[in-house]
Nucleic acid binder design. Structure first.
Length: 209
DNA sequence: TGCCAGGCCCTCTTTAGGGCCTT
């Protein structure tokens, strides 16, 4: 789905499945999943496997459920990422542990000589601030902690992006009711998570419970 | 299975070390 008219309230939540942890060590993306939120609702999505140009190891096959047979039929990273660049446009971006996804996004975009203007923010850093009593801050744990409906099928890109989007909207909803002390203040959350204040303000203003 | 890397954050800290989180 790529019909994506944009405005200032759009936000793309994305997740990569990859061959490993570090593009600087030669790892590549093998799947991208993303959803776009506008005015508190998911309005469209993007998902595609991509062939990294080499075989992935057994751990990654088991961890993601993405096999080498599946990737053999996929388009190349370069072709998929060109479409994904069109999809995100200038929208701001969210990911769970964003430093990881940003490294891969930057690396794959470098391969196609593309840059983007949206700001990247991290749902995990926000969750660490506002859900300090959670058992841990893994995506699956937080989904359970907030009783977000889930079938537990994590480690596929679109599903993880969808769950991150639901978690992100839940966090915004919780922040809107916790701006008074002693809970973390709104300004504190923006500063500590490096989340642009205008982004959260805009999403809160347009949040539809 | 869990290491690789790297950013964030806490503490037995700041001239550092180690856990968490992502695949």
């Amino acid at each position: 789905m790529k019909d994506s008219p944009r405005n200032a309230n759009s936000l793309v939540i994305l997740d990569f499945e990859t061959t490993g942890l570090s593009p600087s060590m030669g790892d590549r993306a093998i799947e991208i999943g993303a959803v776009r939120i506008r005015d508190g609702k998911v309005i469209d999505s993007f998902q595609e496997l991509m062939d990294p140009g080499f075989l992935v190891d057994a751990f990654i096959e088991g961890y993601t459920g993405i096999t080498n047979d599946m990737l053999a039929e996929a388009r190349t990273c370069e072709k998929v990422m060109k479409d994904f660049a069109d999809y995100i446009g200038d929208d701001n971006l969210v990911a769970h542990n964003a430093s990881f996804d940003k490294r891969f996004l930057d690396s794959e975009f470098e391969e196609i000589d593309h840059s983007y203007s949206g700001k990247f923010v991290c749902s995990m850093l926000l969750a660490r601030r506002i859900y300090q009593d959670a058992p841990n801050h893994q995506l699956g744990t937080l989904v359970d902690y907030k009783n977000i409906p889930s079938d537990g099928n994590f480690h596929r890109a679109l599903y993880d992006a969808e769950m991150t989007a639901q978690l992100w909207m839940r966090m915004l909803n919780d922040i809107s009711g916790r701006v008074r002390s002693p809970a973390p203040t709104f300004e504190m959350v923006c500063k500590l998570t490096r989340t642009p204040k205008k982004m959260i303000e805009s999403l809160l203003q347009n949040w539809q419970a």
